[in-house]
Design a protein around this nucleic acid. Structure first.
Lengths: 153, 153
DNA sequence: TATTGTTATACTCTATAACTATA
DNA sequence: TATAGTTATAGAGTATAACAATA
């Protein structure tokens, strides 16, 4: 690497470091406030809601994969899924090829809870975005694909 | 409100709603990944780390106010603070004017843990920002004050 | 009498270990 | 013999209730 290239690289990193330390708290604070927006009537704990969201995003999954994705042990996931099943939000479906296993199927009532919470958060955010001017919203619109690029890096 | 004004308003809301539903997942996903970046050596649970961060942001506070900010009951905060005090990360300081109360003082070792975690997250993000081009970083730079406006709305 | 914080106790949630059923 | 999942049990962590000290 040449001196010019190294200085260019260092300049990049310096710029990125400064940007990161300003962007991080703004993003985390907004996410924290969005996370607080949820329906308190559905008496589900954060783990149960998170499992429902995973099923919406990934489709039906066996207990073991759910446990791995949620970073809990299988016995804990058994308990979480039991709670969701008792409420009729998911249903265990026997695996056709392996009778030890069963897939956790997301029922429509479970899906509706996730979608309703997302709508609630979107509405909360939309109200605040409506207070901005068009140019500010345009900047936010531009940053979405960039954030996605960062997310998938 | 005139028909034109109503349509203008609805147009605004429609625009903001669409933007919100795209921006929300991007922001929440990035925040989730940032939250996962932490030092596993410090054997503190999320609540303990959160209390340290509150003390960094708000300064020393009495147990009751900490409990209210963290949305836990006072006995739970007593327990959390006991754990932090045993590790020398905070210290109870008697209140000069009210001898029932004491302020939870953030020790330097406690502050360093919070700052170290922030540095870690900033570095993680900076590496990903460095992979963007200058124009993309400029967009993100522009969006910071807008996000702050949303956060303070 | 009201308030701040702690102690006592019960409940919830999670993990580890042991077990069942199937591969 | 190995694997998916459940049951049994113990360990954190939180909440409610009762209490102590002070205002």
């Amino acid at each position: 690497m040449t001196t010019v290239q190294r200085e260019h690289q260092q300049g990049h990193l310096r710029t990125s470091a400064g940007l990161a330390s300003e962007l991080r708290p703004s993003v985390m604070r907004l996410a924290r406030r969005l996370r607080q927006v949820r329906d308190e009537r559905d008496e589900l704990n954060p783990n149960q809601l998170s499992v429902l969201a995973v099923l919406v995003n990934h489709g039906d999954l066996p207990i073991g994969e759910l446990a791995a994705l949620e970073k809990v042990q299988p016995p804990s996931m058994t308990r979480i899924v039991n709670g969701l099943e008792e409420r009729g939000l998911v249903a265990r479906q026997p695996d056709a090829t392996d009778r030890r296993s069963s897939r956790v199927h997301l029922c429509d009532s479970g899906r509706q809870i996730v979608l309703a919470n997302r709508r609630r958060r979107d509405q909360w955010l939309a109200i605040r975005l409506a207070e901005l001017d068009a140019a500010e919203r345009e900047v936010l619109r531009l940053c979405i694909p960039i954030l996605e690029k960062v997310n998938h890096a």
